[in-house]
Write a protein that binds this DNA or RNA. Structure first.
Length: 497
DNA sequence: AAAAAAT
């Protein structure tokens, strides 16, 4: 199919052509006609599949007629991160260049003045992150009663980030008569329920489920002691043909540390995480996209949606804490049919996380060793856990003051680690698993391989954390947590009827 | 256990 047959007007087509595209991607081919017809759409797709243009192009077409009044935007797009919001804004600039649509980008970290000025002039397209959008609404700078098209992008990410109450609140302020487009990379039950609430008789559009990602991406992982991680990474950077790469850390602090270390070793690296000033974030991302920086050390702020053309490598300097995040991080490469390579540098404690990832992507990640660095083994998890309760009881009998002092001591981890390293069944050593076949030793393996389904409920997560943390000294309520503390917070506004 | 987003 060609773009010219999809139902878009000549101006939009000209802009698409100028950008160098002739053929719509599958998601565009499926979604655009429905959006043009005014239907609600439920889209299951990751960015890089052309998802953004699948709503920006028809939106430009629909909004071409009519004009926005002051403070009354005609469409609203919500994005989970500032970078994604900026990316969508760029998309409207590119494809809306032959139209005179007013657009405002409402994100945190930038001054209110310009954003308010734009709203006063009247905007056709409002692109926002939830926090700033609600802030401006409460200040009376936005009226949402004229919204014709509402887009929720990256809904699963919004859920992860705890934005859903905000989203429900915003939806309650929108007119009931509107068109809603809802996109999510994954469709867990909680997201589906949300979609059912927001959408009316939607057309469902779905492309490239996460599992197929592995077709274009070569995975590998290595296991090293934490102290060896940086040299392992440097070795990979030197031996791989790295054009440009994202390097993910789990903590912002480690992003900064690794960035410094790489620069010290002469690599052309930048850093990106959410505690950096917005101006710096924008600047660094631009420099990386232009190729002025070849390595970008980042937190999960960049894990989803960020679109960098032709990214050759993704490195997980830390194993992602949630298996889905692996899929999202890796999804930055191997896009648009291009090949990509992904390396994970795990440490011996992360066997459980790796097992959860293997289960999710339905394949083992090949284990590689790196010259000059000792290949470690995963610790036996169940073994360690069995030993823990005893220590907990001991700890309880100690005086609280002693506990305080013990905590401030530098942690001496050598002993327990050496003990577990000798444990009998290293996870990594198990034979490759034949696909979907019940095996007699399955039960046994489940113990190690167990990974709970992704549970997003924050309270649940806290509860689990407390269960796992047997070593932790119990203060305050002790094991008993009153039920009211575990109850979910209610959304501020009742969801739409 | 961490990151993101409002100041």
């Amino acid at each position: 199919m060609n773009f010219s047959e999809i139902g878009l007007g000549p101006e939009v087509l000209r802009a698409v052509e100028d950008a160098g595209y002739t053929q719509p991607t599958p998601i565009q081919e499926q979604a655009i006609p429905w959006v043009l017809q005014g239907r609600d759409v439920l889209g299951c797709a990751q960015t890089g599949t052309g998802k953004t243009a699948s709503f920006t192009l028809p939106m430009i077409e629909i909004l071409a007629n009519g004009r926005a009044r002051a403070r009354m935007p005609r469409s609203l797009i919500l994005e989970p991160t500032r970078e994604l919001a900026a990316q969508v804004a760029e998309n409207f600039e590119t494809y809306g260049k032959h139209h005179k649509l007013n657009m405002a980008l409402l994100i945190g970290g930038e001054s209110f003045g310009d954003q308010i000025k734009k709203l006063d002039r009247g905007v056709d397209v409002l692109i926002a992150t939830p926090g700033r959008m609600i802030d401006l609404f409460e200040r009376g700078n936005i009226l949402l009663s004229d919204i014709k098209i509402f887009v929720i992008d990256e809904a699963d990410r919004m859920l992860d980030m705890g934005f859903i109450p905000d989203i429900e609140r915003i939806v309650a302020l929108l007119p009931k008569m509107r068109q809603t487009l809802f996109f999510s990379a994954t469709m867990p039950p909680e997201i589906k329920r949300l979609a059912d609430n927001f959408l009316m008789n939607p057309r469902e559009v779905s492309v490239s489920p996460p599992a197929s990602m592995a077709e274009t991406v070569t995975h590998a992982m290595t296991i090293v002691q934490p102290d060896d991680k940086r040299s392992a990474l440097r070795h990979l950077l030197k031996t791989e043909d790295v054009k440009n790469a994202l390097i993910f850390c789990n903590r912002k602090r480690d992003v900064a540390i690794l960035h410094k270390s790489l620069e010290k070793h002469g690599f052309n690296a930048g850093a990106l995480h959410g505690d950096m000033p917005q101006s710096k974030r924008t600047e660094t991302l631009e420099a990386f996209k232009k190729g002025e920086i070849t390595l970008l050390v980042c937190s999960d702020v960049a894990a989803r949606g960020i679109d960098i053309a032709g990214l050759s490598h993704v490195f997980n300097f830390d194993t992602p804490l949630h298996a889905e995040d692996y899929v999202h991080r890796i999804g930055r490469t191997g896009r648009a049919g291009k090949l990509g390579r992904a390396f994970t540098i795990a440490n011996p404690e992360e066997g459980k996380q790796i097992a959860a990832i293997s289960k999710l992507i339905k394949r083992e990640i090949p284990l590689i060793s790196i010259d000059g660095i000792d290949l470690a083994e995963f610790e036996e998890l169940s073994d360690r856990r069995r030993r823990r309760p005893a220590r907990k009881d001991e700890a309880r009998r100690d005086e609280p003051r002693k506990e305080e002092a013990r905590r401030e001591e530098p942690r001496r981890e050598e002993e327990p680690r050496a003990a577990v390293a000798r444990a009998p069944k290293p996870v990594e050593a198990r034979p490759p698993r034949p696909e979907r076949e019940a095996r007699p030793d399955r039960e046994q393996r489940v113990d190690v391989m167990r990974s709970e389904p992704p549970r997003r409920d924050r309270d649940d997560r806290r509860r689990r954390r407390e269960e796992d943390d047997d070593d932790e000294v119990v203060i305050g309520f002790g094991d008993h947590v009153p039920a009211f503390l575990l109850r979910r917070a209610r959304p501020l506004a009742a969801p739409e009827a």
